[in-house]
Amino acid sequence: MKQDQSISDEFLNAFVDDQLEPAEKSRAFDLVEHDEALKERVCELRGLKEKVQHAYLHPPQPAHTQKKGWLSGTPYPQALAACLLLVIGNMSGWFAHHWVGYGSDQEIMRSLQTVQRNDIGANSHKLMIHVGTSNQVRLKNALDEAENLLANAMHANQTIQVEIIANSKGLELLRADVSPFAQRISLMQEKYPALSLMACGQTIRNLHAKGVNVHLLPNTGVAPSALGEITLRLKQGWGYIKV
């Protein structure tokens, strides 16, 4: 029994899993042979191991799995069909994107999922829209949000202030050289003087450090850091939308 206490569980596990060096293995066999309690522990561990193996011998197959693997058989007809579908998809996408835009249900759902509002109790006439991604759908979504707010306010003769704050990869929205919406932003600024743009100084410094020269769109302010600006605005009672 004394030996049984001195042998650690780790050692016995390694013995059961055949992970011991030959010399240690011989010692283990010797010990197990002369100690009933140790033998019982080893049997228990082996039993557990076999139970685990037995439990997953036949895992349930997913409903749609076919007998043939996706890599097996002759892939050419499927590949041809896939290419054809891809071409049709691409062409329809290319011709339809101007009038469909991101208005497809899926895109709208995705955009809606990414919008988080946190303006309970905040002043609904002061809103900031935080952009932290370079995903074009989301950038467009941010501008649409801003434009809707500004247009509605203008229509209702209300005063509203909207600030777009961009940091991280979202800074691309406000960079003159890479922004995919430079012209639209310029038009929006002309139409809605209540729209302001703010870039994150921290992100600009990071880009400078990497050797990237950042040219911002006209009338874009620079905050020391986007998070600082957001915190300040929240304290001032601004509403916050993250896109």
Binding site: Y56, P60, P62, A63, T65, G69, L71
Partner: peptide
């Protein structure tokens, strides 16, 4: 290698299933 990859599917699936206990996710 492609053949071996195909043969590994069953093994991978068994382990993935034992991790998540959800056949669709494992697949």
């Amino acid at each position: 290698l492609r053949k071996q990859l195909e043969q590994s599917r069953t093994k991978l699936y068994r382990v993935a299933f034992s991790w998540c206990h959800n056949s669709a996710l494992a697949d």
